[in-house]
Design a protein around this nucleic acid. Structure first.
Lengths: 242, 242
DNA sequence: TACTTATACTCCTATATAGGACTGTCAACC
DNA sequence: GGTTGACAGTCCTATATAGGAGTATAAGTA
């Protein structure tokens, strides 16, 4: 709770930290109304403008939300938003679609060197390994290999594979108490292997997009390593430069 | 944008519009220093805080950039995030290099439907079309097709192709008074054609990354349409989410 | 010449204050 | 009972003012 504030930092920033702490330690819960900015300014002994700047900071960081004439609220965590950058499938009508999931394999395996490195484990540590196809209109669009540290995802082993949902992250949260808060994605292209061509229903030698993806929890610990392959043909990615 | 200011809008927002106009109409060019905020506050007859808020708005929109103790500048496009940066173009010593340019063709052509659409011209309007190879240690790594509206780039036609630099945007700025202020890039993958395979020195059927880029001036008018192809093997894109 | 210092300019933080704009509630009215 | 309107509470805009912090340049000094 250190008020050992570094005096060289601006005041509004120190107050941002104080408020931030009160959110993180649960004093103000998601969705709740916090004190009025004028009250907070008094309470912290700063001018209104300074308090507003501190709050504005937290708003821009996504922790708070203001409603004119009503109050300032702790923002509900908004996962689901788009922790995926690539492979966002859209239907003919243009809206986002979640491909169905068909589990091909689910077993406990010892971590190989690559998985261990990414998940920050030791080679040989137990992992849950999932292989699955993602389908759109019953046609395969993606083949995924997913690796999870067994210690964190025990409940998954007591779940029949058929009842795992297509969207895994909400399920991780509900059943394993593991929240994915950030991710790193790497995209490359390869010529499809015979095995993958067969799974994806494309010609041998066609290009596939390979996405390697490491997901982290709030504390930044890696909790899921995933490799997805899909036909490159329809793939598009775009960015704006300013 | 327009001075038909709606008095119901906040003042700082109206001033944002005024400043925005001065940027768009070229009074302040990209990279240039604008007036001090105190001077602007006087000039527009508002308090300093109000002017700062207007400027903050434009900063967050990416039009301006502040430098403490120095001044406020019109922001230049930052190509750090360009998709091109994810091609592995490194010299033997390991540092990033700008591939050399070898012009294969430069001529005036009538716009086809696709170019006309992107550049917001009419089919048949005159374009300057450039085809060139990008080389690294004398080996081709990228093939580019570039289309420019002839009316904006006349000086280019009086320049011998050999003397065009590898980096064109600074040259556009210097010789044609055209500043690239933003761009849109789209990535896709294709199996290389026989022609491109030959140019790039790769096997027929190998995957290539196709990047299409539309560059705009400060007012948002399209000024260059570019299509680049490079071996997918050298390409690896990565991104942090959240 | 080479280094230090002054200084003048920039943006940045912070205060105190006044009133406007928006929202939800509750009492008064028809 | 349903509508209206006052009201209190919230965030929002705007002003005026003071001094701090960072930067570049020019003047002064060894």
């Amino acid at each position: 709770m250190s008020t050992m504030t570094d005096a060289r930092l601006p005041r509004y920033y120190l107050i941002r930290d104080e408020l931030h702490k009160r959110i993180l330690n649960g004093e103000w819960k998601p969705g709740e109304l916090i004190d009025a900015e004028s009250a907070l300014a008094d309470r912290y002994g700063v001018a209104l403008g300074t308090m507003r700047k501190a709050i504005a900071q937290l708003v821009s960081e996504g922790f708070l939300e203001r409603r004119h004439g009503v109050g300032t609220f702790v923002r509900r965590a908004n996962f689901e938003s788009s922790l995926f950058r690539f492979f966002r499938f859209t239907s003919a009508s243009g809206e986002r679609v979640v491909p169905e999931s068909q589990i091909l394999d689910l077993r406990v395996v010892p971590a190989n060197e690559e998985c261990a490195r990414h998940l920050e484990l030791s080679t040989g540590d137990e992992l849950i390994a999932i292989k699955r196809l993602r389908l759109l209109e019953h046609k395969p669009v993606q083949f995924e290999e997913i690796y999870l540290p067994k210690t964190l995802f025990e409940p998954l082993l007591e779940t029949p594979a058929e009842s795992l949902p297509a969207l895994l992250y909400p399920w991780y949260e509900e059943c394993c108490d593991q929240v994915v808060a950030s991710a790193h994605e790497e995209l490359s292209v390869e010529k499809v292997s015979v095995e993958h061509a067969h799974l994806l229903g494309i010609e041998t030698g066609d290009p596939v997009i390979l996405i390697e993806r490491l997901a982290h929890d709030i504390a930044g610990r890696p909790i899921e390593w995933r490799r997805s392959r899909g036909a490159a043909e329809r793939f598009r990615y775009h960015i704006d430069i300013r």
